[in-house]
Design a protein around this nucleic acid. Structure first.
Lengths: 140, 140
DNA sequence: GACAAATGATACTAAAGCAGTATCATATAT
DNA sequence: ATATATGATACTGCTTTAGTATCATTTGTC
């Protein structure tokens, strides 16, 4: 039972660092030095964030990445969705023979309620607020 | 991101049914007929619940399972712990080089807070209350 | 006592997701 | 030209999930 996996975690930390660099381009080399994330893995993550419109990249020497979106508009839910697919905590568990009464199933309901609450809380967290907290503590 | 996996889900549904049978012994055959859970898989789950002291079994003809614990004392958290291991939502994500400031890491903190809230809510759900809800709806 | 019907114990398997690595192509500042 | 970036893509190893398969043991019934 994991809320966020490692690639989501890495992505968030990379974004927090990039956010702190404001409008300056940040290279993978700099990110690797600061975050200790394995280089080829981080490269892959950044390329995905680029394709998803969260980062903007420039190639060639002096190339790198910068934010393409406002940091207060990049939510934890977005990153989880990108790197972990669906946000549903309880997928349909009876794939073969779906319970006809699924919509009123009490077990599904209690799980759904918890799920919705989690999503609401995740939705309230964005890169800007996290970056602010890190900055205040002098981390990164 | 799944709160409960299929074996936990199956286990809960089996327990709910067994709970409804009160003090009568319930065989795997009856449970398979009612829940449509694959027989060998269900057998394995019930054996685990037996070992963990949640079910009591009797062998031989007319054998089967009944609750070994009070249904209001069997919590969702217990079953998740049994079938999904730890309840930690965010395991240590920097295994190789653990962040020294982990205890004060803002990202870890927000995730931990959500996690604790989820656990509190899961802890409030037990087999008895679920069985009651199912019964009221005439399901199972 | 034989037998059928139940659980106990254990080992095995297939598929999916997670956490990366490796390589080559392409763009660009100097 | 060349060094230094990213882009695209394919591959690998490990773990978890979701089961299946077999044989041993116990027990009620005839």
């Amino acid at each position: 039972m994991k809320l966020i996996t490692r690639n989501t975690d890495y992505a968030i930390r990379a974004l927090i660092y990039i956010c702190g660099r404001k409008n300056k381009i940040t290279s993978v080399s700099e990110l690797v030095a600061k975050t200790k994330i394995p280089r080829p893995f981080l490269r892959k993550l950044l390329q995905i964030l680029n394709k998803k419109g969260i980062l903007r990249s420039s190639k060639g020497q002096k190339g790198g990445f910068m934010l393409a979106a406002e940091p207060q508009e990049i939510f934890l839910t977005d990153l989880i969705r990108i790197f972990q697919g669906s946000l549903k905590l309880n997928e349909c568990l009876f794939k073969k023979e779906p319970c006809v009464k699924k919509s009123i199933c009490p077990l599904n309901k209690v799980i759904r309620d918890i799920e919705e609450d989690v999503l609401k809380k995740l939705k309230a967290i964005n890169v800007a607020s996290l970056a602010f907290k890190f900055r205040k503590l002098g981390i990164n």
